[in-house]
Amino acid sequence: MSQTVGRQPPGRQPSPPTRRVAVVMDCVVTLAGHPLTLADIVRETALPRATVHAIVSELAELGWLRRHDDLTVSVGPAFLATARAAIGSDPLVDAARPALEQLVAETDAVAFLARRVDENTITVVEYCTPRGRQAPTTDGWAEPGRTVRLHPPICREFVAWSDAAVRDAWINRAPRSDRRRLHAVLTEVRHRGYSVERITDDHRSVIDALTGLDTVPGALRDQVRTLLGELSTIDYLAPELTDDAEVGAVTIGAPITDDDGRVIGSVIACPHTTMLGRELKEWGEKTARAARRVSV
């Protein structure tokens, strides 16, 4: 581990708790390319296990570290945001901002930039809104700084271009009833260049609440169940996205790739409305074009 936490200057009283936090963060940052367990950090820092556990827990609560399901620890989104602010520039954001602004001008709707934090997580890092309109602050699904797990069926544009083994592992985390659909959808997303989110969790909660009301007449319950089935269908396949079909889109996401073709981010447009299939395809191509600009 690189020793970036140096000796205490003469005449200054040491602060052991502060130093331990700095040592733990230095360890995780220095070895960021290698997944670290709690035991790894204890070994690298020579700190007591109980101390490391307490520090990691607190830093994870603050977002400076992230704990994963496999018990490894990595740098968290709050630390990355602070580091970028200190440096004063974020190359991905700098590259994406003109493309986002042009996309917003073309669609008159909010667009935002999401970036990959690690193999299982993304975070929202930049908003762009039509002139005179404020960015939404109550839609928790897309608040700046919010992290989102790459759990099926969401964030498909981050997975569709992965190796087959990675795609299969992601699909197998979904309910068995959704897996056949997800296989077809990922193929469709790769073919057309963008994903379409048809419904948000907020919508689903409202509809689920309606279906649970005993006082709702049977005919209305049947209609709501039908609506739920239509809205909760994952994305669109080509036969469902004909030019004259009435379709709905909450978000449209297109991948940003690095020089190796790895998806490192996504440009996401927010129609949040219904439209004809031909209009959705035009909107999707505009979003994909913006993402390609950023990739280049």
Rank of each mutant, 00 (worst) to 15 (best):
H68F: 10
G63L: 02
W64N: 14
S57K: 05
R67I: 11
R66Q: 15
V52P: 09
R66N: 13
V56H: 02
I55R: 02
D69Q: 15
T45N: 07
A54V: 01
V56Q: 01
R66M: 11
L71H: 12
W64Q: 15
R43G: 09
P48L: 03
R43T: 10
A50K: 07
L59V: 04
A54I: 02
A60C: 11
E61Y: 13
V56D: 01
E58I: 01
T51W: 04
S57W: 01
L71M: 09
L47P: 00
T51G: 03
V42I: 05
A46T: 14
A60R: 05
R66I: 14
H68T: 05
R67H: 13
A50W: 00
W64G: 13
L59S: 04
G63M: 00
V52D: 03
L65Q: 05
D69K: 15
R67G: 15
A46R: 15
D69P: 13
A60Y: 03
R66H: 15
H68G: 07
G63F: 03
H68R: 15
E61N: 11
P48G: 05
T45K: 06
L65V: 04
H68A: 09
D70M: 10
L62P: 03
I55A: 01
T45L: 08
E58M: 07
D70E: 08
A50F: 06
L47D: 08
E61H: 12
